[in-house]
Design a protein around this nucleic acid. Structure first.
Lengths: 134, 134
DNA sequence: AAACAAGTTTACGTTAACGTAAAGATGAAG
DNA sequence: CTTCATCTTTACGTTAACGTAAACTTGTTT
């Protein structure tokens, strides 16, 4: 018997609303089991949710995330044509991620330089204060 | 006389619609000059647009991007209180970027492993083909 | 039994980021 | 002059990703 989770347990752990979790299921990102009408989440479901939120932090739409999931799922069962299509989709995503890495690096540099400017401005303010009250 | 750009020049260069560019202006991300009623973009405006699109690729909302711009703009003129607020905002952003870096690394690993699975599945298919026609 | 907590479905509302269409101004080309 | 190409404003439409509220079921605590 591996561990299971209620919807609110997951909602608390990952700091999202139950509404969102149910919505992700509606979008076919999750497929929890049921006991009666109550949803029961396995640790696999939990991983899916984690991956979903990770994708969101990268700015992916739910549709794009779903596509990645089905890519992964069909890796085992695909035909040759399918597999080649998957490979190209995977390449596409990897290229986008590399672009994002570059973007992040650039923005980090800009923020760093903004921080330096900020600290310099602060120093100048403090020097003026010393001049006013010697 | 430094170079200027029309709205459609920028739209072509960055592969966005003129509608989007005007919308960004509406959201106060751009402030192009005017000749008559026609917009004229300086190279500074062009940089702003480039930064805007970079932010979008990272999943930032236009509001967040605007906040970053005003942080940068006010670095020179802020009061001490303002400057400290800016520093904390900058830290916030840098932390988010680091998280994003980690996320990207994870997803890259997952894609890599999906690619390997994919290639293995292809190899198995080809081996079967050889068995069928020796 | 009554109340309470946690879950459910259904459905309408909201916000961001544009798309799209209509109607007009402006300068250059035929 | 008129016919374009490119620009403009105004305004309504659309999609994604939920928020919010209402009404109901189910289990358990008092």
């Amino acid at each position: 018997m591996s561990k299971t989770y209620s919807i609110s347990e997951l909602a608390n752990e990952f700091d999202v609303t139950t509404r969102s979790i149910r919505f992700y299921e509606d979008q076919e990102l999750l497929r929890p089991a049921r006991r009666g009408q109550t949803r029961i989440y396995s640790s696999k479901d939990r991983v899916r949710l984690k991956l979903t939120l990770r994708g969101k932090r990268l700015g992916l739409s739910l549709a794009e995330i779903r596509e990645l999931f089905s890519l992964w799922d069909e890796t085992r069962s695909g035909s040759e044509k399918q597999l080649h299509l998957m490979l190209s989709k995977i390449q596409e995503r990897r290229a986008a991620l590399e672009q994002q890495m570059k973007d992040i690096t650039m923005v980090q540099l800009e923020l760093e330089s903004a921080e330096i400017r900020c600290r310099q401005a602060l120093e100048e303010l403090h020097q003026k204060q010393e001049e006013e009250a010697p």
